[in-house]
């Protein structure tokens, strides 16, 4: 399958995503944020980075890039969209996912591996509930918040896909590290699965994020 990786000014993890999907035997296309055509890709990834210098709020300006109208239509059509780190922030700013990501509670940029628990499945991740994995985080604004009624809905619909095991390093509400939308095709997470796909990195826990979507696409004949 072919992944479309959107590049915004100051995206910096697009090559990691490209390497990850290539390693797993898939193709990719970089899509410039000023484009208005997703070029027939099977899935869209908004990679990590510091789009527009994180000015105003992380993801706030990127959300209005010309390509985002197409990403919105793609997502509305039930097609798979993944937002990693800054990509997650962009998806919440675009209201494709609920809540928002605030500055880390401890006011520090955090860059380390964290233990995570799989809480539910979505189009992008299909591991048994309770599976423990380890992924790197690398962010200053990963403190997830949302209103109480939104949190209740996220829980009731099993939209919380990943939680930090133990104490959330960034102060995230309910230890939330990743959520999906109601249709389960749009998934956003703060950790970076793309960095731990190639065994060279010493960890392959990120592989399942890309193999699940590939298996699902194959199943529906895309």
């Amino acid at each position: 399958m072919r992944f479309g990786i959107v590049r915004f000014p100051a995206s910096n993890c697009e090559q990691d995503v490209a390497h990850a999907v290539t390693y797993l035997g898939h193709d990719y296309t970089y899509i410039w944020h000023q484009d208005t055509d997703l070029q027939g890709v099977d899935a869209v990834v908004l990679p990590g980075g510091f789009s527009y210098g994180d000015y105003l709020r992380c993801g706030a300006v990127a959300r209005f890039s010309p390509i985002m109208g197409e990403v919105q239509r793609f997502a509305d059509g039930g097609r798979p969209v993944l937002g990693i780190c800054n990509g997650f922030q962009i998806l919440t700013e675009a209201h494709l996912l609920e809540g928002a990501l605030l500055r880390n509670r401890g006011l520090k940029f955090i860059c380390r591996d964290v233990p995570l628990t799989v809480e539910a499945s979505c189009d992008w991740l299909d591991l048994p509930k309770g599976t423990q994995i380890s992924l790197p985080i690398n962010h200053n604004e990963g403190n997830f918040v949302c209103d109480a009624d939104v949190l209740e809905r996220l829980r009731a619909n099993d939209q919380v896909i990943l939680r930090y095991a133990g104490e959330a390093p960034n102060g995230a509400l309910d230890n939330i590290a990743g959520i999906c939308n109601e249709k389960r095709n749009v998934f956003g997470l703060m950790p970076h699965p793309e960095r731990v796909v190639d065994p060279l990195s010493g960890n392959t826990d990120g592989q399942s994020f890309f193999t699940a979507i590939a298996a699902m696409m194959q199943e529906i004949g895309a």
């Binding site: 105003l56 709020r57 706030a60 300006v61 209005f64 919440t92 700013e93 609920e98 809540g99 928002a100 605030l102 918040v145 949302c146 209103d147």
Partner: peptide
């Protein structure tokens, strides 16, 4: 739309 995020 842009200058504030009414969610937060």
């Amino acid at each position: 739309k842009l200058l504030a995020n009414p969610v937060i």
